[in-house]
């Protein structure tokens, strides 16, 4: 076997998919923790959120983590496309009748589509907040970039596209939820981490994570929109 056998193998592509996916799960937790500060009302909430945004964009360790996150997102997407193309090639002639629902969950059969929805959301999401925060013209508050006001204005009835933004955000979180429900436990399986005692725990955690995290994410713009009505 050649030295680069591991990198060429189908299994390595799955290890990479699992590692980047599970790393991005930890990113989601961090991101969510920050976002939850948007529930704090008034000036106190504004200050806390802006300080958090400042910390996330300037603190060196976080910067390293953020580059790791960008790389993970890219690898996860590219690897996913490469795997999907290979899988398509493995069955050039499809079945006339195929009953996929008889033997596998819907999310496990639609990871590519769900991932694509998340990727499209990500582009719009980063354009709206990440790009503006890093390179755009930002309002200032107490010497800090006022991301809080930008977020509130975006998910506001005052914004002509505010409602669409809220609905789009919630739908993207729904796609993320289905993606995570399969992806979380699938990542462990791909890495060979399976045990009669721990796998049921991993599966339950996957469900909790896959439903809980997107639900909390989605609740924020809904809350912001309703409170600004």
């Amino acid at each position: 076997m050649s030295n680069n056998g591991l990198l060429k193998s189908s299994l390595a592509k799955k290890y990479l998919m699992a590692l980047t996916g599970l790393f991005l799960c930890t990113f989601l937790l961090g991101h969510l923790a920050g976002n939850l500060q948007l529930f704090i009302s008034g000036g106190e909430g504004q200050q806390a959120f802006n300080e958090y945004a400042e910390f996330m964009t300037t603190f060196p360790l976080v910067k390293i983590l953020s580059y790791l996150t960008y790389a993970s997102v890219l690898f996860h997407i590219v690897d996913g496309i490469v795997l999907t193309m290979r899988n398509r090639k493995s069955r050039p002639v499809g079945y006339v009748k195929e009953k996929g629902s008889a033997n596998a969950s819907w999310s496990s059969r639609n990871m590519g589509i769900l991932g694509t929805i998340i990727a499209v959301f990500l582009v719009s999401h980063m354009q709206t907040f990440w790009y503006k925060m890093h390179f755009g013209a930002m309002p200032m508050h107490e010497g800090l970039k006022d991301l809080h006001t930008v977020v509130l204005a975006f998910f506001s009835p005052e914004n002509s596209l505010g409602l669409i933004a809220v609905v789009g955000y919630v739908l993207a979180q729904l796609a993320l939820s289905f993606h995570l429900v399969h992806g979380f436990q699938s990542g462990f399986q791909s890495l060979g981490l399976r045990h009669p005692k721990y796998t049921p725990v991993i599966e339950k955690t996957g469900y909790l994570f896959g439903i809980g995290v997107p639900l909390l994410f989605a609740s924020i713009p809904v809350f912001l929109y309703i409170t600004q009505l």
Partner: peptide, 27 residues
């Protein structure tokens, strides 16, 4: 093709081969 852990194989297997074998091979 590649395994995406849908588990369809184990459901349809006439001999009930378990997915734990796939994890073992990955390991």
């Amino acid at each position: 093709g590649n395994c995406t852990n849908t588990g369809a194989c184990a459901v349809e297997c006439p001999k009930g081969i378990d997915l734990s074998n796939i994890a073992r091979m990955n390991r």
